[in-house]
Design a protein around this nucleic acid. Structure first.
Lengths: 400, 400
DNA sequence: CTATTTCGTCATGGCGCTTAACAAATTAGT
DNA sequence: ACTAATTTGTTAAGCGCCATGACGAAATAG
């Protein structure tokens, strides 16, 4: 009566589970999906040489994926070379879809992304969520999710999962928002409040923003530091194509890196944290502006108008950021630093002083700094794509 | 005449290579080795339940490993429970051995470690290597390696690889020392100067020290920051049981994290780097001591004698370290910080001020700080063990 | 002394990939 | 225009590897 080890299979990571033929098949299915997803339409033969299996093996894998509705046969390729032309395969446009959602301080947004990575439906609801109770906010979010989901279904898609980006700390592996200062939420369990049938993932919006950069960015370096400033100043670290979360999921707290250790006291208990120099509040104060609704927009507008106060404030913030990033770059040696989220809009005025500080302090080694091309859509897209990635990582687990 | 994909197999990492049955076998062989190595003598049945395969499958795997000389059958276990007692399996004491070597500023040392992790032979040669040319130093090192190797062979071991720890930057994936300031070596290619038949690995001693902590430490957390101070101040980051090297292999430069950004100029081009406050030179100067031969020993001795100057200097260094580590802890959220190498000897006088700074600046989250238990042997042991790990990771590739 | 439990092995079977051969579809050459 | 060469996708045979189920062996429990 020994328990059979048959069900020892586990989630998507696949690495540490006992190696059996079933797992081999699953990983090879995933390899085929990734190859086709990443490198456009491909013939079976092209997939085979790319992933290192034989054409025969790939044939059976592809058959299975087509039957599952994850791959489409587009028909014969245009013959340019000698030999029988291959039959082009592409990731299906009508298979599973990832539903991404974002709870922002001044908006809610939801979108559906197909396996090819295209956004097929989206919905936004503007409105200040600061201080509102979780329940009504999430009720509105559910309405948006329902709307986008049914729109997706009309387009022939099947929602396969929901990922929610929130501006706060999320307990690792759960759906609980531990603390979201700008919303004033504490210990909110989204999995209880979002009773949709879809598998749910919840994560920090900075993390999803970094993943979007990893999956959708132009340069696609596998190692970079993604800095965003929606809640305080957060950094997400991508190393070797993997997001580094830390033991408790608290990694990336760039905002509380000491810049001038004897500087002003910070609510966190420290002194001279980066947030005291480059945080939203601090910059607004230094610029002589009142906190309003769209504070970042205001800063960008004034800076563009060459407002000297604002420009000087941003100059100082950039310098402080540069000093904090010097520490990070020295520790991590990333290929590049990406300014995402709100920071990407302010980049033109932050970058000069930032690069001066970073450049002279990391003389030989250095590191590129650039603004993200994804703008404020990063977290939302990252969330939706995370669902899609899960399907690509384990196609067998997400059969139609 | 298509190239057969047969040889697509690759190194030890195993993950991204096309999944074929051969690879499956190799990974399962590795799982058996790791299980036996980590959890003492084990019966086939115990291995089977532990790694999630059937007894039948484990039997054939074990047979193969015994035939290769990597596993030993110790005979029947002491029966304490009902049922037929299993036959205890242990990692062989006479299989392959890892040869580790360390080029220190004041010594050369070499040791041989068997698959069980026991040091079976070692040799040390004291003598200041500062400023000596690479060739004579390496000639001496080769002599030590030969001596230890033949000693190991006499004990029935077969040297399977040589790993060298050097106090400097090593170009990733090569055997070239880019820069070793304390030795005054630049662009020295060890693979050309160590023409032994053994497969050669070269890495920074701080990295090997961290790996030793990972593999041999008591606590065995999979995420920690290992700080050492042989060459300047280096940190090695272990995340998820993997060493984080950075894109160029320059990760862990804790010594040049800005502490007081307006502080004294640093040769690196920056100002107020940690090294200006907690580096060996800086501490000796603050303590009013001259640089001598065994500088760290001198500091420890004086501190133990309650020398006020020295203690105050170490107190200041600890505070600076604490500030720099605050940044690192905020960024990485490691489970603990370990002071290794020379720092472990000075820990009693560094820790108090270090913990004060770190504690009050990372209020809620915090992070344990402790001295390494491995003392100054860390890098040497880490190097030798890295060879052993390579065998455990791919037993098939290292058959007798 | 028998029943029970656990261990290690063996024979059988299924699954998944490789190999080798073949038909189909195209280009290159005469 | 017709044949040769090349490449694709499929099929059948074969082999490796693990699971399953049965068995003898070696201990404890009653």
């Amino acid at each position: 009566m020994t328990a059979p080890p048959h069900d020892a299979r586990r989630g998507t990571s696949g690495a540490p589970l006992p190696d059996t033929q079933r797992g081999m098949r699953r990983r090879n299915l995933s390899r085929v999906m990734h190859a086709v997803a990443a490198h456009g339409p491909l013939s079976r033969a092209a997939v085979a040489t790319r992933i290192g299996l034989t054409r025969a093996a790939v044939s059976t894998l592809v058959d299975e994926l087509i039957r599952s509705g994850l791959l489409d046969e587009l028909g014969p390729e245009r013959p340019g070379k000698v030999g029988r032309p291959g039959s082009a395969l592409a990731v299906s446009r009508s298979g599973p879809a990832g539903i991404g959602a974002e709870v922002g301080v001044d908006h809610l947004s939801v979108c559906a992304v197909d396996l090819r990575g295209e956004v097929r439906a989206r919905a936004v609801r503007q409105g200040d969520n600061r201080g509102r109770a979780p329940e009504p906010v999430l009720k509105e979010l559910i309405a948006l999710v329902r709307q986008v989901s049914s729109e997706a279904r009309l387009a022939g898609l099947r929602p396969a999962g929901l990922a929610v980006a929130v501006p706060g700390l999320v307990a690792r592996g759960t759906g609980t928002v531990v603390r979201a200062p700008n919303l004033d939420w504490n210990d909110v369990d989204l999995s209880a409040l979002l009773p949709d049938r879809l598998p749910l993932t919840v994560d920090n919006e900075a993390n999803f923003g970094a993943l979007a950069e990893l999956w959708l960015g132009d340069e696609v370096p596998q190692d970079f530091l993604h800095v965003s400033a929606e809640i305080g100043i957060g950094a997400a670290l991508v190393v070797d194509g993997r997001l580094l979360r830390g033991t408790r999921g608290f990694a990336g707290e760039l905002g509380h890196v000491p810049v001038w250790p004897d500087g002003p006291a910070c609510p966190c208990g420290g002194r001279g944290c980066l947030e005291q120099y480059a945080g939203e509040e601090a910059v607004l104060r230094a610029a002589g502006l009142d906190p309003g609704a769209d504070r970042v927009g205001l800063l960008a507008e004034r800076a563009a108008q060459a407002d000297e106060h604002v420009r000087r404030a941003l100059h100082g913030a950039g310098a402080a950021l540069g000093i904090a990033l010097t520490g990070a770059v020295n520790l991590l040696d990333p290929r590049s630093v990406v300014l995402g989220g709100a920071l990407s809009r302010l980049a033109p005025w932050l970058l000069p002083s930032l690069e001066v500080e970073l450049g002279r302090r990391t003389a030989g080694t250095g590191c590129d700094v650039a603004a993200s091309g994804l703008g404020s859509d990063g977290p939302l897209l990252g969330a939706a794509h995370s669902v899609v990635r899960a399907v690509l990582d384990d196609p067998a687990g997400a059969a139609a």
